[in-house]
Design a protein around this nucleic acid. Structure first.
Length: 578
RNA sequence: GCGCCUGUAGCUCAGCUGGAUAGAGCGCAUGCCUCCGGAGCAUGAGGUCCGGCGUUCGAAUCGCCGCAGGCGCGCCA
């Protein structure tokens, strides 16, 4: 049993039914990590809740539960405290035994979930012909992290980049392309259009300034939508060019994602609308076709619509999102669909989900919006460059790496230049990700290079440093952690050993919580806590040359592997030296 | 105007199905290198959990009413 919390929960649930029979069936054993180390490792608050239902004193019930529970193999005799808290302390032998298993377990005690589900995660989602900018940072990083966590649990995760690759803006882009790069309209061959963003800006400038160009642009939209091959080729060339620029950033961020843009869903729009219509969910209003999910009103207090077809016959993101959610359930057989977008879209998704539910599409599936707050500058205003421009992700990453490089150069000039470059890259990118993920994603997040790259505190550099220290011990002592014999791990004794051992055991519970709440900061909090405990351990417990060397090396190895695994779930790499 | 989100130490933030004396980092003060990397460790000061009322054995957490800030509010996404 590698998840101690689950184990205890099971034992208490069992004791509850044994002691109180039907009255306790389905009641929550209320087992949680202890709120304070002085209370032990875990606690159950079930007695207080039960007291009301059974009309008895909570401390009495707690005593009965303790008497009825079979816990001897896991913990010391439980203590009853306060109004009826039951406090559990794991036995040192239990902790040690479990750590022996972990030494030989690649997954460090985290069992794959059963049954595995099919999960669609919709994240990042930039627009074609535009830049990946700071506005995409959180969606990309958080979405990737959630994907990694759910994949590690064993779920089949479909990572979807719902890029904006359709719409009226393509008219001006195609018209501009005709003028500056006519060869892109020909069949076959790919063309390098250069900086697609500059291209977009120029097209936009002409569109705003030139009536003839504007008219031509409108014509191109029509040609594209009706599938004229030349227009479609131009569109593809534009998307390809954008994709190359996106992929460069995803590569640097080590983010894997499958592009499935809005255009992908075009063929499925008619059947989606037909089905909504057949269900009687579509109402016409001012020439537009609308779905009115209940409970949403506009500023006049009138029902708020999803406009699934505009009055000009065109489609918008309500249409695409309705089509996509239906496709994901019906065709991709998703059990769970997760949308990682800014909090400002909360109402939009609430409406999409409500409408999809009404249509019966979510009967066997769960749709969730995972909202996050804005990225703010240190002035607490929306994060912009000094000149007021949107911050490009590329520039942001470059600066993080450059700053990390400056720190490495200063701290460890003996490291060869090539290694310093790797270290700077790992730390710089890792710091950007960690800073974002360690924040409660709901609140707005103040972006600060200085804070994220700080060598102390809850930052990527601090965690990576803890990892590096373990590798450093190995180098010093000429140790190969791969050759440690699990059986040689003796029962933990010192307070620091026990504290570290207990912290290591928590990993499976933490992963469960992250997957349940989709809150990466629960994982970063744990890793930071673990790293601090590890630092305490190795400053106070000599490893090399100590009679307990083997046991302590095993703890070092487990700490390093736990940190490495945890960081990998955040999308952050480690290095052996820094 | 309505809706959503946020409000916790000087600053930046945690606080997980309501649980015990509310935590961390930074900053500040004071210790610790004959010792595995001091990018570290230890100790301390610092709180009207925005305010009020309510629910509960128990509220930072739930409900209602206010206050402040952010975001959104019909054919962009």
């Amino acid at each position: 049993m590698s998840n101690m919390l689950e184990a205890l929960r099971g034992r208490i649930a069992e004791a509850m039914t044994r002691s109180f029979g039907a009255a306790a069936v389905g009641a929550d054993p209320m087992v949680t990590p202890a709120t304070d180390p002085r209370f032990g490792h875990y606690q159950s608050n079930a007695a207080m809740g039960l007291a009301k239902r059974l009309g008895r004193k909570p401390r009495e019930l707690a005593a009965e539960l303790v008497a009825a529970a079979r816990l001897d193999d896991l913990c010391l005799p439980p203590q009853i405290a306060g109004p009826g808290f039951i406090n559990f302390t794991l036995r040192p032998e239990t902790i040690t035994e479990e750590l022996r298993h972990r030494l030989a377990d690649e997954r460090l005690g985290v069992a794959p979930v059963s049954p595995a589900r099919r999960v669609v995660i919709d994240f990042s989602s930039p627009n074609i012909a535009k830049e990946l900018h700071v506005g995409h940072l959180r969606s990309t990083i958080i979405g990737d992290c959630l994907a990694r966590v759910l994949e590690f649990q064993g779920h089949a995760v479909l990572r979807r980049n719902h890029v904006g690759d359709w719409g009226t803006q393509f008219g001006m882009l195609i018209a501009h392309l005709q003028d500056v790069c006519p060869e892109a309209l020909e069949e076959g061959g790919s063309v390098d259009l250069g900086d697609i963003v500059a291209f977009y800006k120029e097209a936009k400038r002409r569109f705003d300034a030139d009536e003839e160009f504007k008219a031509r642009s409108r014509g191109e939209v029509v040609r594209l939508q009706s599938g004229v091959p030349e227009a479609v080729r131009a569109w593809k060339a534009l998307c390809d060019q954008s994709r190359r620029q996106f992929d460069e950033i995803y590569r640097r961020l080590d983010v894997r994602i499958e592009e499935r843009g809005e255009s992908f869903y075009n063929p499925f729009i008619p059947e989606t609308l037909n089905e909504l219509d057949a269900l009687g969910l579509i109402t016409e209003s001012e020439g537009a076709r609308c779905v009115y999910p209940e409970g949403f009103v506009n500023k006049q207090g009138d029902p708020l619509p999803l406009i699934v077809q505009k009055s000009d016959g065109g489609f918008n993101y309500d249409t695409t999102d309705m089509t996509a959610i239906r496709y994901r359930v019906r065709v991709e057989k998703a059990d769970r669909i997760i949308y990682v977008t800014d909090a400002g879209q909360a109402i939009h998704f609430a409406m999409i989900f409500a409408a999809a539910r009404k249509a019966g599409w979510l009967d066997g599936a769960r749709a969730e919006h995972v909202p996050f707050g804005m990225v703010l500058g240190e002035d607490q205003k929306k994060f912009k460059t000094r000149s007021g421009e949107t911050v490009r992700l590329k520039d942001l990453l470059d600066e993080a790496v450059a700053r990390a490089r400056a720190i490495v150069d200063k701290k460890n000039p003996e490291l060869p230049g090539k290694r310093r470059a790797e270290v700077a890259d790992t730390i710089g990118i890792g710091a950007v990700k960690y800073a974002d993920l360690s924040q409660n994603r709901i609140s707005d997040y103040v972006f600060s290079f200085d804070k994220m790259l700080a060598l102390t505190g809850n930052t990527a550099p601090y965690l990576i440093y803890a990892y590096v220290r373990v590798q450093s011990i190995a180098r010093k002592g000429d140790i190969d952690y791969g050759h440690l014999d699990p059986a040689a791990l003796s029962t933990l004794e010192t307070p620091e050993e026990l504290e570290l051992g207990r912290a290591l055991l928590r990993l499976p519970e933490v992963i469960d919580v992250v997957a349940r709440d989709l809150m990466p900061n629960r994982l970063t909090d744990y890793l930071f806590d673990l790293s601090q405990i590890f630092s305490r351990f190795y400053t106070n417990n000599r490893v090399l040359g100590d009679p307990r060397q083997t046991t302590r090396l095993a703890l070092c190895d487990l700490a390093a592997r736990t940190i490495r695994l945890g960081l990998s779930l955040l999308g952050i790499r480690v290095i052996a030296e820094m």
